[in-house]
Each structure stands twice: as structure tokens, then as C-alpha cells.
């Protein structure tokens, strides 16, 4: 089933094209990594695809419905979105922040339904935040806070999760745990689209890579088919060896090309 279909997305600000002629689909049961160098338009592409920023052209269908016909609440029940910047102003307890993920289901803090509470508990467990429930946000480390925000996105329990650099602040163990969690979600029939800069993690866990360069999607396919030394050089400007170990790919990045 198609969870997200974007066609012909274009967006320019003051003559500078952020996204050009971009199109892609996300089906259920896949973990897709959106990769590309800084400023290649990954975050803009996600915002366009979710309708948070109106594009200049293009068509987006979410769960089969044109996104323009979906109310913000209906969209939020189909896609959970974790933005790259996550500014918090109030030192709220962790469980309240996670519970905000239930907003689209009418949840109000202090009056959560049993279903909302259960979803919050599951999300906290999935992000290994047990014991943190009553910690104030301003007492957490950057990595812990990143996991709280991820738990917030997961608490919506949507068919599709779109995450912008969810693992950037995490330690290696939690990076792998998060990617494994995404892979498990995909195996259970859900869809995950995540921006990630760690190419090792991307090729190790993702079913599919979306390569972005200068606002365009320049390649789209499984890591084995798309991750080549030539492409790493042309997109990221790095010199790297790509080895195959059984079914898995291994990258050996040597440095700037």
C-alpha cells in the first residue's frame, strides 16, 4: 500500500531552487533513508511532501488521499513527523512531551485516555526511556532529549513515520537501536522515511536509499544497486570503497575526493 506519493515537487525561495522536479513514493513495509550532503534539500523535501510548506508545483497523496483534501488532524493520523530542530521552552516532564504525540487523537495533558496512556508507555519503552518519565526536559542530555522527541513521534502510532536526522545526537548504541527499531517497524508493515548522515547506518539498515543532490533526487533504489563509489564521489564528494559481505554492503570512506 502506498503511504506517501509525491510527484513533480518544486520549490524555490527568491530564485534559489531548494527542491527541483522531485518525486518519490513510500510504500508500507519499507525503511527508506533520505541521504545527501548539507543543503541538498532533504529537509525541504520532507516539508513539501508533508504539506507543511506549500510547494510551487507538485502533487502529494498521503495514504491515497490528495494532501490538500486532508485536514491537519487527518494528516497527522497518517504520518508522524519528527523535525530536525526541536526547540523546547518549558521544562516539562518526559511523559508529557511524549503524550503530545497523541494530539491528533484529541489527547489533552492531564486527561489522557487509557489508549493514549498505553501508546505513550509503548513509545517510551521503544526508545528505552523507562525511568525517565518524570524527568524534566531541561535535565536531559542532548541524546536523551532526541530520544524523547522520537518517542513523541512514535506515540502517534501512525502507518508512516517521517524523521529528520533522528540519530544525529545519539551514541553508537542508541543509533543502532533506533535504526533497528525502524527496521522492525518496516518488517511489521509500517513505513519509515528518515534523513540520516551516517552512510554506514543507512546502507546497513535501509531497504532503500533516496539520494539527493542540489535539490534533485539523483538516485532511488536499494543500497546494493545505488551505493557505488562513483555516486559517493559525485553526490558527497568523498572517495570510498564499497565491499560486499554476503548480503550486506560495507563502506570504507577514505576522505574527501
Amino acid at each position: 500500500m502506498m503511504l506517501l506519493e509525491a510527484r513533480d515537487l518544486n520549490h524555490a525561495i527568491e530564485g534559489k531552487a531548494l527542491v527541483s522536479d522531485a518525486g518519490f513514493t513510500i510504500g508500507s513495509g519499507t525503511l527508506t533513508a533520505l541521504i545527501g550532503p548539507n543543503g541538498s534539500g532533504k529537509t525541504s523535501l520532507l516539508r513539501l511532501a508533508l504539506g507543511i510548506v506549500p510547494g510551487d508545483t507538485g502533487e502529494v497523496r498521503i495514504g491515497g488521499m490528495p494532501s490538500g483534501e486532508l485536514s491537519p488532524i487527518e494528516r497527522a493520523r497518517r504520518v508522524a513527523y519528527l523535525p530536525q530542530t526541536r526547540p523546547l521552552v518549558w521544562p516539562q516532564p518526559v511523559e508529557d512531551i511524549v503524550a503530545l504525540g497523541r494530539f491528533a487523537y484529541g489527547a489533552a495533558l492531564g486527561r489522557l485516555s487509557p489508549e493514549d496512556k498505553a501508546a505513550v508507555t509503548r513509545a517510551i519503552a521503544a526508545c528505552q526511556l523507562e525511568g525517565f518519565e518524570n524527568r524534566a526536559a531541561d535535565t536531559l542530555s542532548g541524546g536523551e532529549l532526541a530520544r524523547v522527541h522520537l518517542a513523541r513521534a512514535l506515540a502517534a502510532e501512525t502507518a508512516l513515520v517521517v524523521a529528520d536526522e533522528p540519530v544525529a545526537a545519539l551514541d553508537p548504541r542508541h543509533q543502532h537501536q533506533t535504526m533497528r527499531l525502524f527496521a522492525d517497524m518496516a518488517r511489521d508493515g509500517r513505513g519509515v522515511l528518515t534523513v540520516i548522515h551516517d552512510l554506514d547506518l543507512a546502507v546497513r539498515y535501509a531497504d532503500r536509499l533516496l539520494w539527493m543532490h542540489d535539490g534533485r533526487i539523483v538516485a532511488d533504489g536499494p543500497p546494493e544497486a545505488t551505493c557505488t563509489p562513483d555516486r559517493l564521489r559525485s553526490v558527497f564528494g568523498i572517495a570510498a570503497h564499497v565491499r560486499r559481505e554476503g548480503r550486506a554492503l560495507r563502506l570504507d570512506i577514505q576522505g574527501p575526493a
Partner: peptide
């Protein structure tokens, strides 16, 4: 008032949560 709760995560996340 419920939208004010959502806004504590920032404008972008609040929109993602379904806030108009």
C-alpha cells in the same frame, strides 16, 4: 488551549501533530 500544548514542541512539530 489544547493547541498551546502542542506549540510547546515548536511550530514545525506542532504542525506535524495536526495543529492548524
Amino acid at each position: 488551549r489544547r493547541g498551546l500544548s502542542a506549540l510547546s514542541l515548536g511550530d514545525e512539530a506542532a504542525e506535524g501533530l495536526g495543529l492548524d
